[in-house]
């Protein structure tokens, strides 16, 4: 699997993502600066977390208009897998590769800690390494992770099985208690219609080594490698 990691001014999880991808594939991914208009031939484009363009205007809004994102949108249309983590998820919604928007956390606080998630869809190249309904722990670190979409869009996402991950409480249930940021229907990650684009607020790249405090992110990268190699 050949991968590229997009780097914006203000990205700060690009290296973590690169290390996780290299661990999984054995090859370092190409790091692609936001001003580039061409991408190397790759199977996966990863848009990392951070504060692209200082979160000016809205999180992800400026990055979504950058030269490289125009190219990413073209590649996504051809079926190249695209992953957005945290700020990357915000960029993908702003670029309209994924529906909805990520708003200020309902509690208004920046949340940085491991959270419980339930894997809802295991039929994508990103999630096949998990078991349906599996409960995992992955760290989050965000201020704007409150997923919003209108009811019709939410119903469509649910109906089409495009909710990939949901925030859950200690009993593994998607309750208000387990909802760390006020997201509609506890949504933590979603897929596009063709299940080739995935955005999620939690950081699987921060849970790939025992030293991270958990390795629940490993199946995520293993899924991609198995699907795209």
């Amino acid at each position: 699997m050949k991968a590229a990691v997009i780097v914006f001014p203000g990205s700060n999880c690009d290296r973590d993502l690169s290390v996780a991808l290299e661990r999984a594939t054995g090859t370092p991914p190409k790091m692609v600066w936001h001003r580039e208009t061409e991408l190397p031939p790759v199977d996966l484009i990863a848009v990392p977390g951070g504060f692209s363009y200082g979160d000016y205007l809205r999180s992800g809004a400026m990055a979504a208009q950058s030269p490289v994102m125009r190219t990413v949108v073209e590649h996504a249309a051809k079926g190249v897998r695209v992953l957005g983590v945290c700020n990357g998820f915000q960029v993908l919604t702003e670029a309209r590769l994924l529906p909805g928007a990520l708003m200020r956390n309902a509690g208004l606080k920046f949340v940085s800690r491991p959270v419980g998630l339930r894997v809802e869809n295991v039929e994508s190249d990103f999630t096949r390494g998990y078991e349906a309904g599996q409960r995992i722990h992955i760290p989050v670190a965000h201020h704007d992770g409150n997923y919003f979409a209108d009811e019709a869009t939410l119903d469509r996402l649910e109906g089409e099985g495009r909710v990939a991950f949901r925030y859950v409480d200690e009993d593994g249930e998607p309750t208000a208690d387990g909802n760390i940021n006020g997201s509609a229907r506890n949504i933590a990650g979603i897929l596009n219609e063709s299940r080739t684009v995935l955005g999620l607020m939690p950081h699987p790249e921060r849970a790939v080594e025992p030293l991270h405090g958990g390795t629940d992110g490993q199946p995520f990268f293993r899924s991609l490698v198995e699907a795209l190699s």
Binding site: L57, R58, A61, Q65, T93, G100, A101, M103, F148, A149
Partner: peptide, 9 residues
């Protein structure tokens, strides 16, 4: 439409 507002929200 293109940048200043996110018409989803």
């Amino acid at each position: 439409e293109k940048l200043l507002a996110n018409t989803v929200i």
